[in-house]
Design a binder for these strands. Structure first.
Length: 507
RNA sequence: UCCUUCUUAGCUCAGCUGGUUAGAGCACAUGACUGUUAAUCAUGGGGUCCUUGGUUCGAGUCCAAGAGAGGGAGCCA
């Protein structure tokens, strides 16, 4: 049996076909039922008219509940008013699986509720669009690296040692020994690059940090390329080319999905512009407000932001008061009352978000003003710096003390390590961390001791320096953080089908 | 681990300085309406006000402890 898909409706104009899917919405009036059917490829309004289908089928159609699965047969006609430009005029409707009291209603829901219903939330339009974009990003990543001659080679997920010694890892029992869930495949990536030249890994990574922020997950997907005969600067060139490619692919192939989630693509279009490359020293001056960026100052622009947040809060509160006043007036139609209440609820959410910002910005200001040279950037520092740019920013040459032990010491200034962080614009912060790797065995041993890591676990890693070491570099990209930025999501939890984070293991 | 905000109907939220029987919209059910895109009308079922303890003649409201959630810091992609 031929399967007809909603995305191909244009091919079937004037023909009778059968669609199979779920009722994502239903409206009815005398003699007519409108069922919005979704089949995973799109949405299509199906019109069931009593004059066409007769009383029995019509009664069945009238009883269809939200998210029931069904098949509908009918003619495809052009209708400009519809989302896909077509609608189906039904001649037959048949129920496949009933849905009783579907919990996600056609209204705003709180995040806790939606997270508990994540398995159903994924069916909604916005989540559908995000997952399509995520898929496009994954596909583009593979296309890019395969096109550049990289070999995908995956690192183990069970590891016997804490890779960088910094993060908290998940422990698990491995035939009586302790194994950790990998927080990075990078060390293995180096070994593989010294065999295949250019490799990339693509898999899940685990961090047992008790972080509850909009950019942390306990389980996330990471892409880690590693290249032999690459230095820091070639690495940065690759990162830039890579991010530009992936973003461009999304812009070209996900126009509909980006529009659905209301993403302003003009910022994404900026990806064709060269990425600014700042040294750590320059970045610190910008954070502290000692150096402007395109006429914008980090400190004063934060202060302005705070002021505008405060005026926005006042404006929202005024509007809420006005609408509440209006509600008290007699003679308002029921529909209008409902509409106003929905607006008030929405405004209250906005006010709540704005008030959260109002509490956070002074903290960020404080942290920026008092930033101490030599420290790593915190989340707020990244936010402060990336709000000044409209393209991803690369920060390189970090004080070696704050970075991972395996980063190469800068030959021109041994205070610095040749690491690079890529910060996404619009306040999103770090999406890539990478750098050139240390090839000097003695320096590496010194670093391993300094970080108090068990030397025996790194013997194999040191072998890579003992047998034909070469300059090499690589980076790690957090898939969910990239998805979050490209979609401009308020939180990473919407960028992955089933987020795993502190305090949440279900569904 | 620390700071901060919150928890009232299936959902989103009101509930003022403590005062009779705790409200609205949506959803649901029944009926009315021939084209709807959270905006038609009527009817009405729905509550452990997160938990425990306290203050009080009286607690959804005040106090204390606990649980859960949101945001942030630390840490990171």
């Amino acid at each position: 049996m031929q399967k007809y898909l909603i995305k191909d409706l244009a091919d079937y104009e004037g023909k009778s076909i059968t669609l199979m899917g779920w009722a994502s919405n239903k409206r009815e009036s005398k003699g007519l039922v409108f069922i919005v059917l979704r089949d995973g490829t799109g949405w299509c309004q199906c019109v069931v008219s009593i004059d066409v289908v007769g009383e029995t089928i019509f009664e069945e159609a009238r009883k269809i509940t939200l998210e029931s699965s069904l098949s509908i047969t009918g003619n495809i006609v052009k209708d400009e008013r519809q989302m896909g430009g077509y609608e189906l005029q039904a001649t037959a409707v048949s129920l496949i699986g009933a849905s009783v009291d579907y919990p996600i209603a056609k209204k705003e829901h709180g995040i806790d509720f939606l997270m508990d219903k994540r398995h159903l939330w994924l069916r909604s339009q916005r989540q559908w669009a995000i997952m399509k974009i995520r898929n496009q990003i994954i596909f583009a990543i593979h296309k890019f690296f395969q096109g550049e001659g990289f070999v995908e080679m995956d690192a183990p997920l069970f590891t016997g040692n804490a890779c960088e010694g910094t993060s908290n890892l998940f422990e698990t029992d491995y035939y009586g020994d302790t194994a950790y869930l990998s927080q990075s495949g990078q060390l293995y990536g180096e070994a593989m690059a010294l065999s295949l030249g250019k490799i990339y890994t693509f898999g899940p990574t685990f961090r047992a940090e008790k972080s509850k922020t909009r950019r942390h997950l306990s389980e996330f997907w990471m892409i880690e390329p590693e290249m032999a005969f690459f230095d820091l600067f070639e690495n940065m060139d690759l990162i830039e080319k890579f991010l530009r490619y992936v973003t461009t692919e999304v812009l070209e192939n996900c126009e509909k999905e980006l529009a659905l989630i209301g993403r302003d693509t003009s910022v994404l279009q900026n990806i064709i512009k060269p990425f600014p490359r700042l040294t750590y020293d320059e970045a610190v001056r910008i954070i502290k407000g000692e150096q402007d960026v395109n006429g914008k100052n980090a400190i004063t622009s934060l202060e302005q932001e705070l002021a505008s947040v405060q005026t926005r809060i006042n404006a929202i509160k005024a509007e809420i008061a006005e609408r509440e006043e209006k509600l008290k007036m007699p003679g308002m139609k029921k529909g209008e009352i409902g509409f106003n209440q929905a607006q008030i609820d929405k405004l209250k959410q906005e006010a709540g978000d704005a008030e959260e910002q109002e509490r956070n910005i002074p903290q960020w200001l404080n942290s920026a003003r008092n930033f101490e040279y030599g420290n790593d950037f915190g989340g707020s520092d990244e936010t402060v710096i990336t709000r000044l740019f409209d393209v991803p920013v690369m920060v390189y040459n970090w004080p070696h003390e704050v970075k991972a032990f395996y980063l190469k010491r800068d030959p021109d200034n041994n205070r610095f390590a040749r690491g690079v962080d890529v910060l996404a614009p619009e306040g999103y912060g770090e999406i890539v961390g990478g750098g050139e790797r240390e090839t000097n065995e003695a320096l590496l041993i010194e670093k391993i001791k300094e970080h108090q890591l068990p030397m025996e676990a790194f013997e194999w890693y040191l072998d890579l320096r003992r047998y034909g070491t070469v300059p090499h570099a690589g980076f790690g990209l957090g898939l969910e953080r990239l998805v979050t930025w490209i979609c401009k999501l308020p939180h990473v939890r919407e960028s992955i089908p089933f987020p795993r984070m502190y305090g949440r293991l279900l569904p």
